[in-house]
Design a protein around this nucleic acid. Structure first.
Length: 499
RNA sequence: GCCCCCAUAGUCUAGCGGCCUAGGACGUCACCCUUUCAAGGUGAAGAUCGCGGGUUCGAAUCCCGCUGGGGGUACCA
């Protein structure tokens, strides 16, 4: 493994064709961690060279997702930098790619190809017809061997053309990868085709654009998804054609779908980064989980702060084998992070959810906030996602929905005895001097003894009476916060339901 | 079809030739705590280290083959 010395510059270059899914965030994260660990720079660049798939607003959405998990950039579309602009369509207007493509044509490494899409399709069909096996058609333009006059003539006629890389017919290209080990990957040129560098529209393809930009922007390490391994030889050929120094490659494995059938996809999986944000995943939990998708520190440590991960992240501990998306594990980790926050922090973070659920007003009053502060301890360690808060706290804000009175009757109890107990509870609530958690507990335990029942038989009935459900936060705390008035009313309602 | 990559329990992983009677985590199950649910604690089940050959005194670890999975095969990225 080559030692990493000197300044490193890496980039994440998403295509604004939709939201960013967590697999994309993971790739960005590894780049970012690499940059931060080695004290280098992390650059964000927008690769919007696909005019057809462009989605308005996607770029802002992607940047918001990255910022949310804590991935920030030193240079980028919105903040600029020494190599601005960082948006490829804008760079195209500057003629950067055109110029470089022409340069390769001039040096004989590329050529203008006048074969249009329909003609290419026909050639492909002819190829398929004559071959016994449906072998892949490896396009080589006839213009490879044209004379300067022929090219000039075709150009003069105004026919549209693409610029293609003139890939050698034989030989092979080998390259090394930081994650897979040195000089392991070899691809024969016969398996390649003449890649389009510049489209008919004058827009560069990803292959040309990313490479020119990486070079111009001084990118030292290309850390990208493993789906790029097969096209890496083209990139190497391109670097060689330009006479540029190669960056160091590191192809990180994809994150596979939960069922293991393929890599995560926007269309088939609910993995939009925004969705996790909305559901109440803490960015620090997502950061931690994602860092562990393909990277590990040792045989036991999993919960680590951003700082610890930055300090410990090295590319040689990134696996070559793909990880599988495991929402259960993420949820567990989110719970750990939620529990590590203070009451005030949780209160701050659940207020928006309560507002959205209509439980408190858009601009919460101080008394709303102090009420929330009282409620947080009741659900804090039960939260796995912040969005669960409104559901868990509903009965503190709203009238009870109608519930099945049978729920009031606990194990080995019957309706008459339950009714007796509820009436006694009502009376006790009425006369209780100190309406506090401790006072309530003392009082109710006395009742348990008086009725000679198990604690659960009494407490369970009160829980249902007061919350409308059999699973709820701890009882005495709940009663304390709910207040005497509402508790008495609800117990009275419960008793009435049993009569 | 062709090309490339990958392969330790259901899942994420530790392991980089002897410390492995394969360690940790999620999930599952049991028990403890306990007013429910959680959280916490203890423990259990779960891996012939995909299969077959080598190399070696010795292989989960190195090599080859096979199988399986994934990726690529666009004027998409």
């Amino acid at each position: 493994m080559a030692e990493i010395t000197g300044p490193v510059r890496v980039r994440f270059a998403p295509s604004p064709t939709g939201y960013l899914h967590i697999g994309g965030v993971r790739t960005a994260l590894f780049n970012w961690l690499f940059a931060r660990h080695y004290g280098g720079q992390f650059i964000l660049r927008l690769e919007d060279t696909d005019e057809k798939r462009f989605v308005q607003g996607a770029a802002d959405d992607i940047m918001a997702s990255l910022r949310w998990v804590g991935v920030d950039w030193d240079e980028g579309p919105d903040i600029g930098g020494p190599h601005a602009p960082y948006v490829q369509s804008e760079r195209k207007d500057l003629g950067i790619y055109q110029r470089h493509a022409e340069q390769l044509v001039a040096s004989g490494h590329a050529y203008k190809c006048f074969v249009n899409a329909e003609e290419e399709e026909a050639m492909r069909a002819a190829w398929a017809a004559k071959g016994e096996r449906p072998e892949r058609f490896r396009f080589r333009g006839p213009e490879r061997d044209w004379s300067a006059e022929q090219v000039a003539e075709a150009e003069a006629s105004g026919r549209p053309y693409t610029i293609r890389l003139k890939v050698p017919l034989d030989g092979a290209t080998s390259f090394s990868d930081l994650i897979r080990g040195g000089d392991r990957i070899t691809i024969h040129h016969a398996d390649l085709y003449d890649l389009v560098l510049l489209k008919t529209s004058g827009m560069p393809t990803y292959h040309l654009a990313h490479l020119v930009d990486d070079h111009l922007m001084g990118i030292t390490h290309v850390i990208r998804g493993e789906e790029w391994v097969p096209s890496a030889p083209y990139h190497i050929l391109l670097y060689q054609a330009f006479g540029w120094e190669l960056p160091i490659f590191a192809h990180v494995p994809n994150i596979m779908r939960q069922d293991g059938k393929g890599k995560l996809s926007k269309r088939k999986d609910d993995v939009s980064t925004n969705r996790f944000w909305e559901r109440g995943y803490l960015p620090e939990a997502m950061f931690n989980y994602l860092a562990l998708q393909g990277w590990s520190y040792d045989d036991k440590t999993e919960i680590m702060s951003r700082e610890e991960i930055v300090e410990r992240f090295t590319i040689d501990r990134v696996l070559a084998s793909p990880a599988r998306w495991n929402p259960e594990k993420l949820k567990d980790m989110n719970g750990i992070y939620i529990r590590s926050l203070s009451t005030a922090e949780i209160a701050d973070r659940i207020v928006p959810y309560l507002v959205q659920a209509g439980m408190i007003s858009e601009s919460p009053r101080p008394e709303d906030l102090s009420y929330v502060l009282q409620l947080v301890p009741l659900i804090h360690e039960r939260l796995e996602e912040l969005q669960q808060a409104p559901e868990l706290l509903a009965f503190f804000f709203q009238e009870l929905p109608t519930y099945d009175p049978k729920l009031l009757i606990q194990k080995q109890m019957d309706a008459p005895r339950t009714l007796d107990m509820l009436r006694a509870v009502h009376a006790a609530f009425n006369t209780l001097e100190t309406w506090t958690t401790a006072g309530l507990e003392t009082e109710l335990r006395t009742l348990v003894e008086r009725f000679g029942v198990k604690p659960g038989q009494l407490f369970g009935a009160i829980r249902v009476a007061v919350s409308g459900r059999s699973v709820a936060p701890p009882l005495f705390e709940t009663l304390a916060v709910l207040g005497r008035e509402r508790c008495m009313a609800r117990v009275a309602d419960a008793a009435a339901a049993l009569e």
